[in-house]
Design a protein around this nucleic acid. Structure first.
Lengths: 222, 222
DNA sequence: ACCTGAACACCGTTCAAGT
DNA sequence: ACCTGAACACCGTTCAAGT
C-alpha cells in the first residue's frame, strides 16, 4: 500500500474549515434560501460539519453575517486614482455597488440594513470621498454628496433586489398582476416601465441625473 | 349589586383583540426591541393573551408584519391635488415618507426590505405618480423619476434609521469613534458632517438637488 | 486546536380542546 | 367565535467531553 493510503476507518476528506470557506458557503446558501433560511445548522450540514463547529471560527451569527458582507464587498471593483477622472471613478463605484444587488438579491439586504465596518466597506467609502475631494468639494459638501449618492445606490439596489426576488417567488406579484393596482390609473400606466427588463435603463437614468447635477455645481470653480 | 357587577371569578377586563390593536401594539414593541425581538409570544404577553390567539386575527407572522407596515403608512400625510403645485406635493410626500425613519428607526427596515402592497402604500405611489404626471411627464419618464425619488427616500431613510439606532445601541460606533476609520483620511475628515444632528440638513440638500434637476428638465415644455 | 453531543431557552405554527 | 395548552419541528448558543 502506498504511503497516502487511507483505511476504511478514516473520516471522509473535506477542505479545511476556514472563515473564508464558511463565509463563501454562507453567501451561496443565502443566495438559495435567503438570510432567514440560512441557519447555523443548515450551513454546518452544507460544510459537512456540526453547527457548533462554526463557533470555533466566529463568536456568533452576527459576526458570520459580517463576514458574508465582506464577501460581497470582495466583488467590488475599486479603480485606482490615476486610471480615470474623478467623475468616471464615482460612476464606476456606484455601478459596482449596485451590481451586488443583481448578483445577490437575497443577500443585498445585509448591506442596506446592517452596520457595516469591514476593511473593504470602509475602503469603498474612502474611494467615493476621495473622488469627491478630487472634484474640489470640501468636507461638508462631500458629506452631502456622499449621502445622496449612497442613498441612491442603496435604495436603488433594494428596489432591484425586490424586483428580482419576485421572478421565481411564489408570492403575489402585485404590480405585474393587474388586480391590486386596478383602482390606481397612474400606477397602471407606469407599471410596464418598472418591469425587470427596464432596471438597467432606469438605473442609468438616475445615475445621469445625479452626476449631471454634480457636474453643474462644479462649473466656475478653481 | 348593580347589573354591571363583576364577580371575583370574572377574567380581568381588557380591550377587545382586533387586527388594529394587535398591529399598533406590534409597532410599539418593534420600536422597543426591533423586528427580530418582536416574537408572537412576547407580543401576545403585551396584549394579555397567549401567542396562539393572534392566529385568529392573522394567518401568520408575515401578514402581521404587513399590518405593521400599514400602521406606518397611516402616519403619512398625502396632500390633496388642489392644495399645492405638483413639485410642492412631491416634496411633501418624500418628507413624509422619510419622517417614518426618524419616528420608527427599528421598524423602517420593513418598508425597505419587504414587498409592500397595502392600500395606503399603493395610495402613496399613486400620489407621487399623479404629481409627476401633472408636471407633464409621460409614463416612461415618470417611471424613471419615481424610482429615482423612491430610491433616494428609501436609501436615505435607511441611513437615518441606522444613525439613530447607534445612539443608544451598545454596538460599536464605528465612524463616530476614531479607531476603525483611522487609516482613511477622507472618512476622518467627513465623519463630523455625517453626525446625527446633521441628518436634516443633509436630507434637505439631497431633496433640493433632485428637485432642481427635475425642474431644470421641465423648462421649455408645453 | 478542532469538532461532537447533549442540553437550554427560545422560535413560528398546528391542532384538539375548552368556553 | 375566540382563546388556551400541549405539542412539533425548528432556532442560536453554552458547555462538557472527546480526539
Amino acid at each position: 500500500m502506498s504511503p497516502g493510503h487511507r483505511s476504511r476507518a478514516d473520516p471522509p476528506i473535506r477542505p479545511p474549515l476556514t472563515r473564508e470557506r464558511i463565509a463563501a458557503t454562507a453567501l451561496s446558501l443565502i443566495d438559495e434560501v435567503g438570510v432567514d433560511g440560512c441557519s447555523m445548522r443548515l450551513l454546518g450540514s452544507r460544510l459537512g460539519v456540526e453547527a457548533m463547529a462554526l463557533y470555533h471560527h466566529f463568536p456568533g451569527k452576527g459576526d458570520l453575517l459580517e463576514a458574508v458582507m465582506d464577501e460581497l464587498a470582495a466583488e467590488w471593483d475599486l479603480p485606482a486614482r490615476g486610471t480615470q477622472p474623478p467623475l468616471g471613478r464615482l460612476r464606476h463605484l456606484v455601478r459596482s455597488y449596485r451590481a451586488t444587488a443583481l448578483r445577490h438579491p437575497r443577500a443585498f439586504v445585509l448591506l442596506a440594513a446592517r452596520r457595516f465596518q469591514t476593511e473593504r466597506s470602509l475602503a469603498l467609502s474612502e474611494r467615493i470621498l476621495e473622488a469627491l475631494a478630487d472634484l474640489g468639494l470640501d468636507a461638508a459638501e462631500s458629506a452631502r454628496w456622499f449621502r445622496l449618492i449612497g442613498g441612491f445606490a442603496s435604495g436603488f439596489g433594494m428596489a432591484d433586489a425586490a424586483s428580482l426576488e419576485r421572478i421565481d417567488a411564489p408570492t403575489p406579484l402585485g404590480m405585474e398582476r393587474g388586480s391590486a393596482i386596478a383602482p390606481y390609473p397612474h400606477l397602471r400606466a407606469v407599471a410596464p416601465h418598472l418591469r425587470v427588463d427596464k432596471l438597467d435603463a432606469v438605473f442609468e437614468f438616475g445615475l445621469e441625473v445625479l452626476f449631471d447635477a454634480l457636474a453643474a455645481r462644479l462649473i466656475g470653480r478653481p
